[in-house]
Structures are given as C-alpha cells and as structure tokens.
Design a protein around this nucleic acid. Structure first.
Lengths: 252, 252
DNA sequence: ATCATAGTCGTCTTCCTGACGATAAACACT
DNA sequence: AGTGTTTATCGTCAGGAAGACGACTATGAT
C-alpha cells in the first residue's frame, strides 16, 4: 500500500508517571488532583502531553521534574547521584480511556527516595504522597474515614502495573537502592523491601544476603544511629545492577 | 491548564511485531520486505497503523493474523489452543525514528511454534523467517554470502529488546511452551531453551527440573519417536505460568 | 543498673543445582 | 542376530544458598 498521510487517524500521546517512594514503612505513590474535567477534583497520576520535538523518555523526565523537582538519571548511568530511577512501564491505548479524544499514554515508572514535599505547579494541596493500597482500593474509605474515589481514567490499572513492576524488579536487581538516600544502612534497605513487598524479612538473613552479594553494597566507612539501637554501618549502592541469585520474595 | 484541543501535537500510532519462533535449532524472527519508501526494499518488522476504534492489543492481534494467520490467545487464557502468545513489549517514540512524520510505535512480542510458511499479503517472497543474529548483525554478510542491510527504522533495537525479553522471560515463566506445538517432548522443550539462550543444557538435569516442577508439564500418555532414539513421553503445557524456582540460565 | 532496640556474626538443616554414571528403547547398519 | 548410535530417563553425590533461630554487641531510654 502506498503512503497516504490521510490513512492513519491522529492520536494524542501523553506520558503518565507512577512515582513511588517509601514513607513511614509504606509504599506510596504521587497523586495529583485534577483541576479540570473530565474527572475534575479526582486524584490522578501526574502526566502530560508529549511535545512535538520530544522523545518519550525526555517527556517523562520533564514531567517528573515539574512535579517533584527530581532529576532522572539516565538508565545507562546507574545510581550515582540522588536522582530518581526512571523507566518506561507500559502503554495504554483503549479507545475509550479518555472521553474527550483518542489518547495513548506511555506510562513510566519512577522510584525515588523519601522527599521533602510534593509540589504540583506550586500548589501543594493538589499533590500528595498516598499509600498505594489507599489509592488502589476502589470506593472504600481512607484512613481518615473520608470516602475514597477511584483514580481518574485507567490510572488505577497503571498504578497497579507499576507497583507490580517494582515488586518484581527489586527481586532480581539492585533497584531497591533507588528508594534510599545516597548513604543508607542495611536496615533501611531491608525496610524498603518490607514496605514494597508488604512482608517481614529476617534481619539476619537479609544482612547476610545483601552484604554477601558482590557489588551490591559498598561500605562508606561511616556509621549512623538514626534508627536507634546499635550504630549501623553506612553503605552506598555498588555497581552491580543484577542480583544473581535474586532476593527471594517470601511466599504468600 | 484548561483543555485545549490545539494544545497537543498529533501523532501517528503504529504497532510493530517481534514474532519469534524456533526453527532448525535457531531462534528466528519474522521479517517483511518494505515495498515503499522510506527504506524501500529493506527488511523490517511487520506492523501497521492502529485504527481509530481499536485497542493496542487488538491492533497487534490483527497484524499478527494478517502476517501469519496465527490467532493470538488472550493473555488471561493461557496456552490451551495452538494460538500464539502475544504481549506488549515497549513503545518507541523518538521524534526522528520515521522521517515522514511523528510516529509512536507500540511494539509487541509474539511467540509461536514453528509454522508452515510466512505469508505477507499473499506474497511469500516479501516475508521470511530469519535467525535473529542474522537480522541483528549490522552491515555484515548473511549465510549465503549476500550483504545484509540492517533492519529499517529502529527495528533492530526493537528486535533486540524483544529477544532479550523472551530470553529472560522463559527463565521464570512457562513461556517456552509457547514455542512448542500442543504436544511436545521434554527434549523438544529443551531444544527451545537451547535455541533461545544459545547454550547447551544437560538433558538429565533439564528433565529432572521440568518434570519436577508442579503444573509445568502434564503428560498426555502418548509417546513419540520423531526425534529418533528411544521414544519420549508427550506432554502438554500445564496450568502453571510462573516457575518457582526459576530455570537457571547458565553463566558465560 | 536495667531494659528496649537495632545491628551483626554463627550454626544447622533443607532444598536445589551442576556434574556425571548407568540403563532403556528405538533405529541403522553389517 | 549383533553392534553401534541416538535419545530418553533414572540415580547418585557434592557444593551452595536460604530459612530458622541462637548469641552477642552497642547504643539510648528509664
């Protein structure tokens, strides 16, 4: 078939972000309140249109910076600075996912250490970190007893897919360090795994596993006592990106 | 920002397919010859525009049927019929990836058993199964001494990503059975792993592993001798989709 | 001083894997 | 019929990794 510019329907292309962090022992995602219809007033994932001259990864990094101030580091340059990890998640293109028009959204997954405070266009009341279970429970009641509306569009599905990606990826990669600040302790890293997986891990076996995996952790020499108890060694993320053998997620 | 239909640039959205199969002990991908510019005469991955009323998965299934005659089975209805496995791979949206216009391509990965013959719009000379190493080597010479042109667009990258996805996914899932016909032997399944990974596996340990994993293989009672040697038991794919513990890919 | 908390080192058992010997059942020869 | 070849299948053994859990250490709180 010859090339015919009228042969294809026009689409709008957006990027949506699943930004995850660990706060107070819970896996949290960034949500923004929608200011206009459709779904006005409802919570949604941050995102926006891809510009005409922009790559998808660039658009995702730009949105991430606009919403959180985080720089994304290039995936080819792993965890050195305290920028966020950013990767493409999946693409959602149901014809009816946006009632206004045909929109294809390329969702991205970002993992960040605990941050001071979200900012959505300068208005803090329109952005928040919320535990993912709270955002995913449809039509229930939140911790404060307020009714919880489901996320706008198909964002509950996107968030669920992003959480599942994070849960499986920390098994066989060193990605859990993306949730930690530059220097962290073994206990802090363990609490990341526990929050993301929602399980309790044996501190002794965990310590043996992570310190025994070459390239995973690099001791910085310092110690800290910010968690109480005996001072703990401080580590930085090592160069290894793949864990072999993987960290095993407990059954059930 | 209020909704403004002129606020976003229009995109064309396509699906491209990485269709993999195992033929003659080699991992092969389906390639089609381009009939029009750009890249006229070069080999490319099959694909096409997403229609206005079509979901992305529907578009991919339609293209797969057009190119190969294969029905894709729904991911929620695993390996029963001899349809192909189809899943979304990744999305490619570099502004310059298509010189004509802004095209975002949602690549999909399909795994199929060895098929009679490809058909691309009825013209067999414009479609072929080629070993992935042959398609991925840039500017070398093929088995027959002819110069090999690299794949059109960014399809070499897409193919490489698809192959990598397949290689890693057969580690921890029962997806390797998607390369096999409905009934197959342990040896045939082993040859799938060997072709996809490009390694030799110990037949005895492989046999112990796959027959010892509950839900992976279901004996059908029959035997076959189509490989020569002692008759082998026939199996069908069991209901299990996740392999735990995974099949280990040898180092090197 | 005592307790609570968190970190770190060991031990033991169990399971899984890799290496590899041995047997079984077909076919192709001579 | 006998012999060799090929593929399938069962068994054995050693090494490594993980789960369960005891023991000890170093802080702060009471």
């Amino acid at each position: 078939m010859p090339y015919d510019p009228s042969a294809f329907p026009p689409f709008a292309v957006t990027v949506d972000l699943v930004v995850l962090t660990v706060r107070r022992h819970a896996l949290c995602a960034l949500a923004v309140r929608r200011g206009e219809p459709p779904f006005q007033g409802r919570w949604a994932l941050p995102g926006g249109f891809v510009r005409a001259d922009e790559d998808l990864a660039q658009a995702a990094a730009r949105e991430l910076a606009e919403e959180t101030g985080l720089r994304a580091h290039d995936p080819s340059t792993p965890a050195q600075d305290n920028g966020a990890h950013l990767e493409q998640l999946a693409t959602y293109g149901d014809p009816k996912r946006d009632p206004r028009m045909r929109v294809v959204s390329v969702a991205h997954l970002a993992l960040a250490p605990d941050l001071p405070a979200p900012r959505a266009g300068g208005d803090a009341s329109n952005a928040r970190w919320a535990p993912v279970e709270e955002l995913l429970q449809q039509g229930g009641y939140g911790r404060d007893g307020e009714p919880v509306a489901p996320l706008a569009f198909d964002h509950a599905q996107i968030l669920a897919d992003g959480v599942e990606r994070a849960r499986s990826k920390i098994e066989y990669s060193s990605l859990a360090t993306a949730f930690c600040p530059t220097e962290f302790t073994v206990g802090e890293l363990r609490r990341v795994y526990e929050a993301v997986w929602g399980v309790a891990l044996d501190p002794r076996n965990f310590h043996r596993k992570v310190t025994g995996t070459p390239g995973f952790l690099v001791p910085t020499g310092g110690t800290t006592t910010r968690q109480g108890g005996r001072p703990a060694q401080l580590f930085r993320a090592g160069g290894a990106t793949l864990l072999n053998p993987p960290m095993l997620r407990p059954e059930v």
